[in-house]
Write a protein that binds this DNA or RNA. Structure first.
Length: 420
RNA sequence: GGGGGAAUGUCCCGAGCGGCAAAGGGGGCGGACUGUAAAUCCGCUGGCUAAGCCUUCGUAGGUUCGAGUCCUACUUCCCCCA
């Protein structure tokens, strides 16, 4: 990244200051466009799952800043390109998704953007577009004559995404080989339809984006721009976005706001400052202050990170609820009644409810066998008392003042069991 | 079209003379230490009504007291020759 470059536009200034920029094809040119409010921009999101996960959050935040600094953002659903599959950054071919899967995935993904962007008909209002609209109608021979002629296979073979596969002697199907052409074509088509001049994406998208700029020049779009964000890893080198339970999904029905809050709360020390810049909208001097906190005080910064990030996605109220649940659970050690809970027929509790079964029913362990192993390892607790006997039973006497029993797996995962 | 290889614990990689619930790693989970962090150390990582029983090594058969291991066919993938 150019260090001498002094942006005049708010857009580039913010993105550079906050650490969103990895590469840009032309800082000065893009800066002028952004300053004039003409930097209409798109980012493509493939519909490979029912929800996006935190890995896409950097991209979403970039669109949000773009809008806040007076330009028009266009999230593009890859309804068409998902049918092909992007080989970038992948060792193996993606599974081919059925059109029905793709439709379902698109619906799930759309719901997230509404929370980060303002949609409408105004000059800087966001518009949701789906490349299925034009890609699925393409006529093969026509496409080859109008678009395919501009692609050099020699050059495509030299691109990272392709070369890696070839060098490792991993198969790259013709289908995937075409992904780049389609993405390039999207860029040109979006320029025609919406006057888009910039495409952003993760650093692995650089090749695809630049190839779109090239295609645009040959097809007369005028100058287009590329801007990519750095690939995010945690300070200890792990890929961003995995937790105990799996991916950190953005849709609330796949990961509860509480768990989402916990994800941010458990950020490594070394990541706090970077994440505050990327995933919250706090002013930089405030972030600098938080980042400087030493020792266990850094935990205050982590709570703020969790509150802010959760607030952006799930709303202020949900964030506060999550924070409150966490405070009670971890700092007071009481069972917050907002913890996840399961219900068990009163009669079963009166008869004595087996601990192993209770933990399985709560979804904390997958089987009685796993529960037994956890008992041996001292990982299960009932009302904060370690379970030492796998034959122990939960009875009415275990109900606390709120009429619930607190089941815990490890220090962090708790479920309330209530009689019904 | 011809020839040669490979598929292992449903997270991944990977060893496996005919006695195997199957080495080892990664990842994950739990414990200790901490600050709900990182690093480190330790334990666990098929199911069950559990000193026993059941289900697992691409699929289907076969040989054998006994098959992940040997044989046959099939499926999928890879490599070489044409």
């Amino acid at each position: 990244m150019s260090t001498t470059f002094k942006p005049k536009s708010d857009f580039l200034r913010v993105l550079i200051e906050r650490g969103y920029v990895h590469q840009c094809s032309d800082f000065e040119g893009l800066d002028a466009k952004a300053k004039a409010g003409e930097a209409t921009t798109y980012i493509g999101f493939d519909a490979t799952a029912k929800s996006l996960h935190v890995g896409s959050l950097v991209q979403i935040m970039m669109l949000r800043w773009l809008q806040k600094t007076g330009n028009k953002p266009i999230p593009l659903m890859g309804g068409g390109t998902t049918m092909v599959g992007d080989p970038s950054g992948r060792d193996e071919s993606r599974k081919v998704l059925t059109p029905a899967d793709i439709e379902a995935n698109k619906a799930g993904i759309r719901s997230v953007f509404v929370k980060f962007l303002t949609f409408g008909d105004g000059a800087t209002d966001a518009v949701m577009v789906d490349n299925a609209e034009w890609l699925l109608k393409l006529n093969y021979v026509e496409f080859l004559r109008e678009v395919g002629r501009h692609f050099s296979v020699n050059r495509m073979l030299s691109m990272d995404s392709v070369r890696m596969r070839i060098e490792r002697e991993q198969e790259l199907s013709f289908l995937e080989f075409n992904y780049m052409c389609l993405q390039s074509y999207d860029f040109v088509e979006l320029h025609k339809r919406y006057g888009i001049v910039l495409q952003m994406g993760g650093s692995d998208q650089w090749g695809n984006i630049v190839s779109g700029i090239d295609l645009g020049r040959r097809m007369g779009t005028g100058q287009l721009y590329a801007l990519t964000s750095p690939l995010l890893t945690t300070a200890s080198g792990a890929k961003m976005g995995k937790t105990a339970a799996g991916a950190v999904w953005l849709n609330a029905d796949m990961l509860s706001p509480y768990d989402y809050w916990q994800f941010w709360r458990n950020t490594e020390d070394g990541d706090v400052g970077r994440f505050l810049k990327l995933f919250t909208e706090l002013p930089l001097d405030e972030i600098a202050r938080l980042e400087a906190l030493g020792g266990s005080e850094i935990n205050e910064a982590k709570k703020i990170l969790a509150n802010e990030a959760t607030g952006l996605l799930h709303g202020r109220e949900a964030a506060e609820r999550a924070a409150e649940t966490a405070r009670k659970t971890f700092e007071e050690g009481v069972a917050a009644d907002t913890l996840p809970s399961i219900e068990v027929p009163r009669a079963e509790i009166d008869a004595g409810y087996g601990v192993l079964g209770a933990f399985v029913a709560a979804g904390l362990v997958a089987s009685n066998g796993e529960a037994r192993r956890q008992v041996k390892g001292g990982g299960l607790r009932v009302n904060d008392a370690p379970v030492t006997d796998e034959r122990a039973v939960i009875t009415a006497a275990d109900l606390n003042a709120d009429g619930a029993v607190k089941l815990s797996l490890g220090r962090k995962r708790h479920v309330l069991l209530r009689p019904r």
